[in-house]
Computed example of a mutant assay.
Amino acid sequence: MAVELKEMVCITCPLGCRLELEIENGDIKAVYHHSCKRGIEYARQEYYDPRRMVTATASIEHGVMKRIPVRTSEPIPIKHINALLNAIYRLQLEAPLQIGTPVIRNFAGTGIDVITTRNLETIEEGC
């Protein structure tokens, strides 16, 4: 099989190195134009198992606000993002909630939780 070149920008530090990956038979053979070894690690992670942090808002009842911001506890594989967002948007949470409260645990067996990112009081507490 022919050698393929794939370009990506490393986001692990402010340098933003423009990486070039040499791919053969679906495997990375070399990573070029990196300034540090974090670039190599980033390229491998992004090529084989791309992940992203997910942030969203979930519905909450009896709170001083109608929605509460939530995020994943760590980056989740991209293939799970749509299903995760659907699950978050179906949530019906109840105030009060404290920052860091898991509202979804171990999503799809990934070991990744969805947690709140702020405190939210009930209407009575907030008045």
Rank of each mutant, 00 (worst) to 15 (best):
M65I: 06
R90P: 05
A95R: 10
L97M: 15
C127W: 10
P69S: 04
E61D: 08
T57A: 12
Y89N: 15
A43V: 02
I28W: 02
H62Q: 10
P102Y: 06
Y47D: 07
I28Y: 03
R67M: 11
E20T: 14
E41F: 07
T110I: 05
L91G: 07
A56P: 00
L85P: 01
T55Y: 07
R52V: 15
L15S: 08
L5F: 14
E125L: 04
R71M: 14
A2D: 13
R118H: 06
R38W: 06
R51E: 12
R67Y: 15
L21F: 09
I23V: 13
A83Q: 10
S35N: 10
I40M: 08
L120Q: 13
S73W: 06
L120G: 04
L84V: 01
C127A: 12
A83T: 00
L5G: 01
V31T: 10
G39C: 05
N119A: 02
Y89C: 05
Q92F: 00
Q92D: 05
V103L: 10
T72V: 06
P96N: 09
V3C: 01
I23D: 09
F107G: 05
E41M: 01
V103K: 08
Y47E: 01
S59H: 13
N119T: 08
I76L: 04
D49G: 04
R71L: 02
C17A: 05
L120T: 04
H80V: 03
E46K: 13
V54R: 09
M53K: 05
E74F: 02
R118D: 11
R118M: 14
K37M: 10
K37G: 12
T57V: 12
V103C: 12
G63C: 02
P102I: 00
E124G: 02
F107S: 05
K66A: 15
R90Y: 12
A58M: 01
I112E: 07
P96D: 07
E4K: 14
H33I: 07
K37Y: 03
I104V: 06
K79N: 08
R71D: 00
R51L: 04
V114A: 06
E61Q: 13
V31H: 03
P69H: 11
Y42N: 06
S73G: 13
I123N: 02
C36S: 11
H33T: 07
L19Q: 08
L19F: 03
L5T: 01
S59D: 13
R52A: 15
L97V: 13
G26F: 00
E22W: 06
P50D: 05
G100F: 02
V3L: 12
G126L: 01
I81P: 11
L5W: 14
C13I: 02
L19K: 01
I28Q: 04
C36R: 01
I88T: 07
C13L: 04
I78W: 08
E24W: 04
